[in-house]
Simulated scan of single mutants.
Amino acid sequence: MGSESLKSRTRDDYKFHLEYRTRWSDNDMYSHMNNSVYYYLFDSVVNAYLIQHCALHPPTSPQIGLVVHSHCDYFAPVEFPAVVGLALRVNKLGKSSVTYEIGVFERGQSPVRAVGEFVHVFVDRETRKPAALGMADTLKDGLSKIAVDKSKL
């Protein structure tokens, strides 16, 4: 997907939203949020959704999600003391994998600041291999609710 298409993302393009108040320590020496913090936020919004809407309990669930790919396109900086809106959707839902897209918006401003992609493969906690039947129904059902196009699932 081209960066121009990603730059045109709005909050309405996403189905789950979570706010994060930036901290002074999130800034880097250039006075904007450090790249590593974006990945921390991606992990946080994805896991918040999985815990709240997919019955995932990370310490004990029989299946766990392993990150196999992530990237981020940055369009404009965010700096302390901003409050950012993290917006989540599922772009692709497979048998054992899910591709998330996360939009980062600054409260009170329309343009998207960054768009990230995050891919989980759900595996058995013990064997670290995908289950024969794929991800658990509770995961798949919850993730399908924030999928972009359910007809392609």
Rank of each mutant, 00 (worst) to 15 (best):
V112Y: 01
D28M: 11
Y100N: 04
R23D: 14
A147T: 09
V112I: 11
Y39M: 06
N34I: 02
Q109G: 02
R23P: 07
G134L: 03
S44G: 03
A114R: 02
G103I: 15
E4A: 10
P59Q: 13
A82L: 06
M29W: 08
A147W: 00
A132S: 07
K152H: 10
H57I: 10
K145N: 08
C72M: 12
S8H: 15
D13F: 07
C72T: 05
T10F: 01
V78N: 04
A55L: 09
D124M: 07
M1H: 06
A76N: 05
A87R: 06
A82D: 11
R89N: 05
A147R: 00
Y20K: 11
K15R: 07
M1T: 15
V46K: 05
S25K: 12
S97Y: 05
G108I: 11
K129H: 07
P111K: 14
R128W: 11
M135W: 03
Y30M: 14
G142C: 05
K152Q: 09
Y38V: 01
K129D: 06
R113K: 15
R11L: 15
R113F: 14
R125C: 04
N47G: 05
D13W: 14
F75S: 08
R113A: 15
V112M: 02
A132Y: 04
K129A: 15
E126N: 15
V119L: 12
G85H: 13
S44Q: 11
W24K: 14
S110N: 11
D73L: 03
V112W: 01
Y49S: 13
S144A: 12
G108Y: 04
V83S: 11
R107A: 08
L56F: 02
V148W: 10
S96L: 15
Y38E: 02
H69A: 11
V119T: 09
T99G: 07
V121A: 04
I146Y: 05
V119C: 12
R21A: 06
G103L: 15
E79P: 07
F122Q: 00
A136C: 07
S36H: 08
T22H: 06
P111N: 12
S151K: 08
Y39V: 02
Y100I: 04
V37H: 00
I64T: 01
I102A: 09
P59Y: 09
V45Y: 03
R9L: 14
Q63H: 03
S5L: 07
R107C: 13
V67P: 10
F118V: 03
V37A: 02
T138N: 06
R21N: 10
V148N: 06
Y40A: 14
Y38G: 02
E19F: 13
K140I: 13
Q63A: 00
H71D: 15
F118L: 10
A48P: 12
I64L: 02
T138P: 01
I102K: 06
Y20V: 13
F118M: 04
L88P: 03
D43L: 00
P62N: 12
R125T: 03
Y39D: 10
S25A: 14
A87K: 05
D26Y: 12
H120V: 03
V46Y: 06
I64C: 00
R21P: 09
T138C: 05
M29Q: 10
F75H: 15
E126F: 13
G94N: 09
E19G: 07
E79G: 15
V115E: 04
E101F: 09
K7L: 08
H57A: 15
N35R: 05
S151C: 13
R11M: 11
E19W: 08
V68W: 07
